[in-house]
């Protein structure tokens, strides 16, 4: 079983902080607006503090989840299928047979790029888990994985992909 590159942790933490920041900003901002318009609550400052508390909780929660996610994530390039294990709360284990691969992408988001990581996305014709992403890969490993999957998909050729 292969783990992700440890550098993906700061990526996820950054994203978690950014998202929590947005959510918290909206919460606290909303609370402040409601408090300002005194005809509604009479300007109770406790509302703002409650919003701050919720925002702080969201931040801690998201960061904890992002931290934990790395420990759960693993994948395995098996003989006839790709195996992926992930999910902090809902544990998801996916088996994707190579015959079913439609195409494979490499993606690099802005945060990922800043630490030099890449994501490989695998597409099948399925209806539910039609695309599976393996994040946090060294670009070389991503390239290698993509090539490997492509080779394996062609090797298991001959059958209709649907």
């Amino acid at each position: 079983m292969e783990r992700l590159d440890p550098r993906v942790r700061p990526v996820w933490l950054t994203i978690a902080v950014i998202r929590a920041g947005f959510a918290g900003g909206f919460l606290v901002g909303g609370a402040a607006i409601v408090t300002e318009s005194t005809d509604w609550t009479g300007g109770d400052v406790r509302l703002i503090w409650a919003a701050v508390a919720v925002a702080a909780f969201v931040l801690v929660f998201r960061v904890a989840v992002a931290w934990q996610r790395y420990r759960v994530w693993r994948f395995d390039v098996r003989e006839d299928s790709l195996y992926i294990e992930r999910g902090v709360f809902t544990r998801i284990k996916t088996v994707v047979p190579y015959v079913r691969l439609q195409h494979v992408d490499t993606q690099r988001g802005p945060v990922e790029r800043s630490v030099g990581l890449a994501t490989v996305v695998i597409y099948t014709a399925g209806s539910r888990s039609a695309d599976v992403a393996i994040p946090g890969l060294d670009p070389e490993r991503a390239e290698e994985l993509r090539e490997e999957l492509r080779r394996l998909a062609i090797e298991s050729e001959g059958e209709d992909a649907v």
């Binding site: 999910g87 709360f89 809902t90 544990r91 998801i92 284990k93 996916t94 088996v95 994707v96 047979p97 079913r100 099948t124 014709a125 399925g126 209806s127 539910r128 888990s129 039609a130 599976v132």
Partner: peptide
Amino acid sequence: RVQSVVYNQTI
């Protein structure tokens, strides 16, 4: 006809 097999476990 199986495309992928997904194992799912909530807390």
